[in-house]
C-alpha cells in the first residue's frame, strides 16, 4: 500500500485535479441525490470510500477528509495523528521519531503540496477531530452538508 500512497503524493498535481473534478460533480449533484434519499446509503458509501481511499492514501476513515489541504497525503498515517504539520521530532534523515523506518508523513505532505495548484491550503488550521465520525463516509457528509447549506463555499 505504501507504494500506491507514494504514487499519490508524487503525482499530487493530477490527483488534485481529479479530486476537484469529482468534488465539484458530487457537490453539484448533492441536492438531487439527497432528495432521493442519499443519506440512507451511509454504509455502502463508507465501504466504497474506505476501499478507494484506503488503497490510494492508506486512509484511516477519520470521517473528516483533509487530503486536498495536506498535499494529497493522509495525515492520519502520522503515528501521532497530527493534522496541522510535523512535530519537532523529525529525524535528520527525514524519518519519524516514533517509527524509525517511516518517512515523516508531513515531509511527504509538504512535497505533495508543492506540486499542487492549491498547495497553499496546507497552511490552513485544522480543527480537532470529532471522534464520533470515525468510520463514516466523509464524501457523503460533505454532500449532505452542502445540500443543506445550499451554495456555501467549499
Amino acid at each position: 500500500m505504501r507504494a500506491l500512497r507514494r504514487l499519490a503524493t508524487r503525482h499530487a498535481g493530477p490527483f488534485e485535479r481529479l479530486y476537484l473534478v469529482c468534488d465539484r460533480l458530487a457537490l453539484a449533484l448533492a441536492p438531487l441525490l439527497v432528495k432521493a434519499g442519499l443519506e440512507r446509503l451511509e454504509r455502502p458509501a463508507a465501504v466504497l470510500e474506505s476501499w478507494t481511499k484506503g488503497a490510494l492514501f492508506d486512509c484511516n476513515m477519520c470521517g473528516r477528509c483533509v487530503l486536498a489541504a495536506t498535499g494529497m497525503t493522509c495525515p492520519m498515517n502520522c503515528p501521532k495523528g497530527l493534522r496541522n504539520g510535523p512535530c519537532g521530532g523529525v529525524r535528520a534523515n527525514g524519518n519519524c521519531e516514533i517509527e524509525a523506518a517511516l518517512r515523516c508523513v508531513w515531509l511527504e505532505a509538504w512535497e505533495g503540496a508543492g506540486r499542487m495548484r492549491h498547495g497553499g491550503r496546507i497552511g490552513e488550521l485544522q480543527a480537532p477531530l470529532d471522534h464520533r465520525l470515525k468510520g463514516s463516509s466523509a464524501w457523503l457528509r460533505r454532500m449532505v452538508e452542502r445540500a443543506r447549506l445550499g451554495s456555501a463555499p467549499p
Partner: peptide
C-alpha cells in the same frame, strides 16, 4: 504536542494526541 510514548519508560501506554500543539 509531546514526544511519542515509545520514547519513554512506559512505551506500552496509550498515546492520546486528541489535540495537537496548534489546536
Amino acid at each position: 504536542t509531546g514526544d511519542g510514548v515509545e520514547a519513554g519508560d512506559q512505551p506500552g501506554a496509550k498515546p492520546v494526541f486528541d489535540l495537537d500543539s496548534i489546536t
